[in-house]
Amino acid sequence: MGRSPCCEKAHTNKGTWTREEDERLIAYIQAHGEGCWRSLPKAAGLLRCGKSCRLRWINYLRPDLKRGNFTREEDELIIKLHSILGNRWSLIAARLPGRTDNEIKNYWNSHIKRKLLSKGIDPFTHGPIIIDSDKKIIDGFGCKFQKNPVEKNLTELNLELSIGPPSQHPLESKEKKVCFYCSLGLENSKDCRCGRSRSSSSTTADFLRMEL
């Protein structure tokens, strides 16, 4: 079973707060304190949700709120606290008097984060940005490049190529070409031009001499 709503939305005002509503809220809190936000709207005579009253008071009507731009000291403190606490804006706001968590969060996303990125600092880790693809390291003061070792080895290879006729295999060079008549089995034909008929006849004669 969920938590019951703090008010009936059908009977509450929405949108921009009027000057009269601000004055009623300020007068009630100055007289009675913040108290319980669920019962405050009815006690103060406001047709507003308790959450709306709380946010209006904390973010706009508190007398101790700081107005104007953030100082350089506040910027440095926010960066230091964010490196320790992360996105815990309420804890960061507790260490910056007069600043709200919502105000600090908006200021971080709109200003400080871009400032860190422009210096090469990761706004999440607060360290230098490292890009693994080409080992590019940005340290906020300049860029350092580390050459990819694979690319370095490729540049050192000697890739000179020579174009020429294919070399003849030694076995192919020893084999003699066969003429048309020898391919038909007519080695002893008088028209044979590859010399196989003469070589075969001389080989036969030598064999006969050996037998004699």
Rank of each mutant, 00 (worst) to 15 (best):
D64I: 08
S199Y: 06
I84T: 13
W89R: 08
F141V: 06
G15V: 10
R99C: 03
I131Q: 15
E172S: 08
L117W: 04
I92E: 00
L61K: 06
E74A: 02
R114P: 01
P41S: 04
M1Q: 12
N13P: 00
I29Y: 01
F70V: 00
H126L: 14
E151H: 11
N109Y: 07
F124D: 15
G164I: 04
I130V: 15
L116T: 05
D64F: 05
E21P: 05
T12Q: 03
L171E: 15
L159Y: 11
I92H: 07
E172Q: 06
L55W: 03
Q30S: 09
E172N: 05
G2E: 13
D75F: 11
G68L: 08
I137L: 13
G45E: 02
S202H: 05
C182H: 11
S118D: 14
Y181Q: 15
G50I: 10
G127R: 13
L159K: 14
I79E: 14
E151T: 12
L81V: 07
G98A: 06
K144C: 08
K144R: 04
S110R: 11
K119F: 15
S189Q: 12
G127M: 06
I58C: 01
E211T: 15
I92T: 12
I131F: 14
H82V: 03
E76V: 09
I79Q: 10
R54I: 01
I78D: 11
P5H: 13
P97K: 06
C194P: 09
I104C: 03
A31C: 01
P128K: 08
G33T: 09
E175L: 08
Q30F: 00
K80G: 08
G98V: 07
K105P: 01
L55V: 02
A27C: 10
P41W: 03
L184G: 09
I130R: 14
S183K: 13
C53E: 02
R196T: 13
A93Q: 02
S200K: 14
L25G: 02
C143F: 08
T204Y: 05
G33I: 05
K135V: 01
Y181N: 13
K136N: 12
N158A: 09
P165Y: 08
F141K: 11
T71R: 10
K14A: 12
L208Q: 14
H111D: 00
T203V: 00
R67V: 05
Q30A: 04
E73C: 08
G86A: 06
L212Y: 09
K105G: 10
K119P: 03
P149G: 12
L91F: 10
E23N: 15
P63F: 02
S110Q: 05
K105S: 11
L184A: 14
L81I: 09
G50T: 07
H32T: 15
T155G: 06
K80C: 12
A27Y: 01
Y28G: 14
W57N: 04
A93K: 02
H169Q: 11
L91M: 14
R48H: 00
F145N: 06
K152N: 05
G86Y: 04
S167N: 08
F145M: 11
S52W: 01
